[in-house]
Design a protein around this nucleic acid. Sequence first.
DNA 1: TAAACGTGGGG
DNA 2: TCCCCACGTTT
Length: 307
Amino acid sequence: MTASARTAVRPVRQTRAIGAAIEGWGRADGGATRRDDLPWRSTRDPWAVLVSETLAQQTQLSRVVPAYHRFLAEFPTASDCAAAPLGDILRAWRGMGYNRRARNLHLAAAAVVDRHDGQVPDDLDALLALPGIGPYTARAILAFAFDRDVGVVDTNAGRVLSRAVEGRSLRPAEAQALVDAMVPSGRGWSFGQALLDLGALVCMSRTPVCGACPVRRRCRWAVAGRPEPDPAKGSAGVSTVQARFDGSDRQGRGRLVAALRTGPVGPDEVAVTAGWPGDTDRARRVAEGLVAEGLAVRDPAGALRLP
DNA sequence: TAAACGTGGGG
DNA sequence: TCCCCACGTTT
């Protein structure tokens, strides 16, 4: 390691101090800048945590709450989910978008039944092997269901880590090692919750509220006067801009799946249902994509329906 | 590694 | 109406 690289990294002792400050803020804040009202905060049921975190992927939490309740009411265990046809899962998924998440959740439930006797595993590699469970969700399950000392890096945590701890953009492995080192011993759950809340409600993307931040005096970016470019841009875990939705295949797919939740879509209805009455080829191609992904099936009459 | 993948709310 | 935004994973 070069001398410049060494001086660019904050000493482990200071990193741990920032972690302790964040965890302490989460416990002492009183809720003013926390999201204690979220229903999954009060559960440690690993299946419920897996469901809530999968629903939360790329989705605002306010929209996750009703889906979380109806999903767990219908599928209270992984076995219940695995035993149901995918169509039932997709109907419970209504309004959530990114329907591949629902398919992957169904597959994950089946894998939990087959490989883990119906119990969500508390092992990182086993979790990562489940469909739809990536680096964030696997560690969220470990921290929030099993209170393990692992750090979680989503878009909000990614901002905090890049701005406050190092003051520069981070690579994924670097961010993960950093956040793991910040977890106060035995405080995986409360540290993770506090970190996510801090990122979502204080260290916001466009207009961070540094005056309300528990680490403002230790934050490299804040202390430096928040210079541009924002170190969070392009840093590990931080969301990037998406392709335009209006007019996209995604929009047509969404329309088709929404219609399929109500009933079958005949071959002559696909184009109009997808929103492209003048482009049958495109509609057919997108419909085939849904079939190929297992999100729809074609019955003997050629109509599209949910699996 | 870039691109695909949905939806609803707010300004 | 249009644009921006929001607690990732897969190929």
